[in-house]
């Protein structure tokens, strides 16, 4: 079978995700979901190598997400959907929102200003979902009642679930070369050294900003109803992605348009 995706990006995605899981295990020890911010600051300020591992965790997670976008784009351009059976295609597409959720809950459980804000918005949006809203919220967020606990569990379980599922059905972990792992670890390390990510502290800010990939939704929420801007709008690209199997041209055009719109919202939100 001819490879439709570039190996460097695919193995980079694999390496970054694995790295995020490993560093996650390490910083899990000093982390306490009851005191999210205090323990996160503790990881950075008091634990040996704590800051390093937290930064590595942060950047390998970000890299994994960015490489996932790259990987997906390549797969779509290579028309890989043709070779997937509908059930498998659907399952594969569903890893996309799950990865996003892992990334998102990662922000929530820092317990800082960005995390708290993201958690509150997510909770309110989840509750807007018809029928299953309450359940979803209890599974993933429930930050008002439970603090970071549920988001923490979701973060851990979802990432493990993703790893196990993808290893089982999407790629073979033993084919990951050590040098790929080392290379992508170095990239994350370099980023961590050059741009140490900060916990947001802005007790007086009149408008706190959520995670960067969430800014577009945050901005859209200013103009449209939560139902429209918070649920339908972000669900649209997933639907389009899924539909690529059957109407590739139209779905691809829709995806392109959606991303242009989302990018503009993000830009406006970032400049606020």
């Amino acid at each position: 079978m001819k490879s439709r995706v570039s190996p460097w990006a695919s193995w980079g995605l694999c390496a970054s995700f694995l790295l995020a899981v490993i560093t996650g295990i390490i910083i899990n020890y000093p982390y306490r979901a009851e005191i999210p911010l205090i323990s996160t600051v503790g990881i950075e300020g008091t634990v040996p190598f704590g800051a390093l591992f937290r930064y590595l965790h942060y950047y390998s997670g970000q890299l994994a997400f960015l490489l996932l976008i790259w990987h997906t784009t390549e797969a779509l351009l290579g028309q890989s959907y043709r070779y997937r059976r509908p059930f498998f295609w659907t399952t594969l597409i569903s890893t996309y929102p799950l990865t996003l959720l892992v990334l998102f809950t990662g922000y929530i459980i820092r317990g800082d200003e960005t995390g708290l804000l993201a958690g509150r918005i997510a909770e309110n949006l989840a509750l807007k979902l018809p029928l299953i809203g309450e359940l979803i919220n209890r599974l993933l967020f429930a930050v008002m009642e439970e603090g970071a606990h549920r988001a923490y569990l979701a973060h851990v379980f979802l990432s493990w679930g993703l790893l196990v599922g993808l290893i089982s059905w999407h790629f073979r972990l033993r084919r990951l070369e050590l040098q790929d792992l080392a290379l992508w670890a170095s990239v994350a390390l370099l980023l961590a050294l050059l741009f140490p990510p900060s916990l947001e502290f802005a007790p007086l800010a009149t408008h706190a900003k959520g995670p960067w990939f969430f800014l577009g939704i945050q901005e859209a929420l200013r103009y449209f109803s939560p139902y429209l801007a918070g649920l339908l709008f972000p669900a649209l690209p997933l639907l389009l992605l899924w539909l690529c199997k059957w109407w590739p041209k139209r779905a691809a055009l829709g995806l392109l348009l959606w991303h242009v719109v989302y990018l503009s919202f993000t830009l406006v939100g970032a400049l606020r």
């Binding site: 205090i38 600051v41 300020g45 008091t46 040996p48 800051a51 050294l193």
Partner: peptide, 14 residues
């Protein structure tokens, strides 16, 4: 990274 960690002043607590 090692040098940086070695020179870093860690707090005893939060």
């Amino acid at each position: 990274v090692l040098v940086k960690e070695w020179r870093r002043q860690r707090a005893p607590q939060v």
